[in-house]
Amino acid sequence: MNQHTALLDVRDLVVRYGAVTAVDHVSFTVDAGETLALNGPSGCGKSSTVAAVLQLRRPENGSVRFEGRELTTLSERELRPLRPRMQPVFQDPYGSLSPRHRIRDAVAEPLRVQGRWDAAGPARVAALLDRVGLDPAYGDRFPHELSGGQCQRAGIARALASEPRLLVLDEPVSALDPSVRAGVLNLLADLQDDLGLAYLFICHDRAVVRHFADRAVEMRGGRLVPA
């Protein structure tokens, strides 16, 4: 029964900011093809948890295994080839994208970095923008020339460009109106069905969580609590 390895296995994660413990021995797993919702009130440690999962902030304690490999002991250089496989979409829509790069280049970058850029590249970028409901004409713009929701979708397109196994989605649809949001959630569901993507999903809207997630864990004051 316990033979299978989870795609993501987080154990006893601890994040401290000075004297403040923001994440206090948190453990959970996410399987391939599964959506785990991370719920909890504002300030309970959700964004801190995902930053530590992604090794964007090294946790003070605990283990993060991704595809069976322990990440916390890897150097930044050793992490680099793994990063495309676990992509974040950040809470702040403008935070996912560099202000100095056009949208087209931001979405193309993962393809370039991974050596997958070829003659079909521009069409791939256009198709990704189209799938998140952004007319490819927006590719010419800089992030500050987009609306909040357009920027959020560009961030999702960029995260998808590197063909990840795990997407860490921190309020990925909060800046979207209901109809565009429905389109993005349907897209994420389709990708999960087709490619077995896994999602670690933070969203304060309970109706969306209920619709979208397979399982949920609940955080309070840095700890997991029984739901």
Binding site: A207, R210, A213
Partner: peptide, 18 residues
């Protein structure tokens, strides 16, 4: 029409309830 089905008060059996 695009809204997900409304939240139920009792938290019944959806994933938000665990």
């Amino acid at each position: 029409a695009s809204l997900p089905p409304a939240d139920s008060e009792d938290g019944e059996d959806g994933p938000a309830g665990g």
